[in-house]
Design a protein around this nucleic acid. Sequence first.
DNA 1: CGGGCGTTTGAATCAAATCAATTGGAGTGG
DNA 2: CCACTCCAATTGATTTGATTCAAACGCCCG
Lengths: 262, 262
Amino acid sequence: MISAATPTVANALANPMHARAIARSSDAAANQRSSQHIADTLKLLGETLTPQRRVLHAGDVIYQAGERFANLYVLNSGFCKIVNLSVDGREQVVGLKFRGDWLGFDGIANAEYACDAVAMDTSDVWVIRYDALLAACAATPVLLTVLHEAMSRQIGCDRDSLMSVCTLPADARVADFLRYWADSLAKRGMRTDQITLRMTRAEIGNYLGMTLETVSRALSRLARSKVIHFSEKGRRDIHIPEVNALVDFVQRCLSPARTALQ
Amino acid sequence: MISAATPTVANALANPMHARAIARSSDAAANQRSSQHIADTLKLLGETLTPQRRVLHAGDVIYQAGERFANLYVLNSGFCKIVNLSVDGREQVVGLKFRGDWLGFDGIANAEYACDAVAMDTSDVWVIRYDALLAACAATPVLLTVLHEAMSRQIGCDRDSLMSVCTLPADARVADFLRYWADSLAKRGMRTDQITLRMTRAEIGNYLGMTLETVSRALSRLARSKVIHFSEKGRRDIHIPEVNALVDFVQRCLSPARTALQ
DNA sequence: CGGGCGTTTGAATCAAATCAATTGGAGTGG
DNA sequence: CCACTCCAATTGATTTGATTCAAACGCCCG
């Protein structure tokens, strides 16, 4: 039954193909493998667990901090944000999730979720009972591989986030954010030349640790230096002629050779 | 053989007692449970896996980015840092590990480690072969619980880091760092009134996303406002009369201008 | 059409980085 | 033991990058 999916996933796991956004180049072949791997994983989960599906609209809450942990979730389409709220009321977007990403790992340790997960677009998630998943792992060990890989990838991804926030100036951070977004789409087989940010400047700024004005200025500078273009109407659609130009822009921000623009 | 250890850990997992640094109060009872839980987990790992032990000295590398993934590590004593190096040469401390913490999760996804792990003091780590661990999980399911819990906790911990860097001004970030350090010690049953930072100002600054001068100034201000005291000789030993005073200090940094969500 | 957002942009301000000078320990070797 | 270097840390002066405050624009929708 799962024999068709299993080898594919296993094989995929053998060669590391969904390496986290390695700065340069969106290798088309690697992206295709990533895309295939996500599809295979979803197929495997669908066949072995027949998860319940939940359709979501922008703003819908998938789970909330404090809620008793019972399920993991896998995003089948759409995308959503993970929001952390500190006791003193600071609110912070700490993660973004795309198709194939898992949600809810933060809940395992303390038997309750530590963050809110909120859809940012029409999405559908698969609900995976954690106990059922563990039970199924006994019969289908590759499930465990997939689970651990997803947790591991999230750890790496979160660290990259921290790295970006800690080491990059504002403009570079915005450029790197767009690069990350485009790469995420590319890894899912979606086009990256024309992307629609479904976040406000305020949300982007929150995620990147800066104000909405700074985000706006950074985007304007990126547009002025032709690294991105805004579509005719609305400033939410962004055209990225060449993703690598974003990487170069980040480098230019970092090098003291002030080739950067004014 | 493991029947003595298993119920303890299982029981410990039932009530969420090692909640991540909840801002206020270092609840003595909770800390004691945490400490016990760490001891129980180490005992369980020692008995079921008889891991190889490695003694380390400050500066020793546990694993390096790019190295083929095969082992997870559990820190039995001492402590160490996790360092991420970007392709363009930016270096960033992305995590700190204490007794009972696991290292190497970042390696699972891509079959190679993504970071360096470096001892910052005389330490000893237990080497846990990942495949052996998975095999042992079949016979001792609580091992899997422990593993997932550790990964989950790390995800939460990394997010707290990001939150701190993104939402706190420099002084508050340093105060929160000391609070985190003291809490980490408290959860391991160590005294928190007198702590010895085994990091230079430069390392602290790197971890917190600021310069070493800013760290120094922040510490001076904390000392001036009596929240901490430097010991007579050397400025590495810090006396913290009341950990909650650090929490209050963070609040005071925030209160002038309450920037809730933008 | 007008009101409400989200966005852009400018000017003033402020926090943190940078630059620079000095102090203080730890270690070395005459 | 002192003179010496080396390096971490502190502190001050200055600059810079980001925030804040403010005004205006464009867009969507009732």
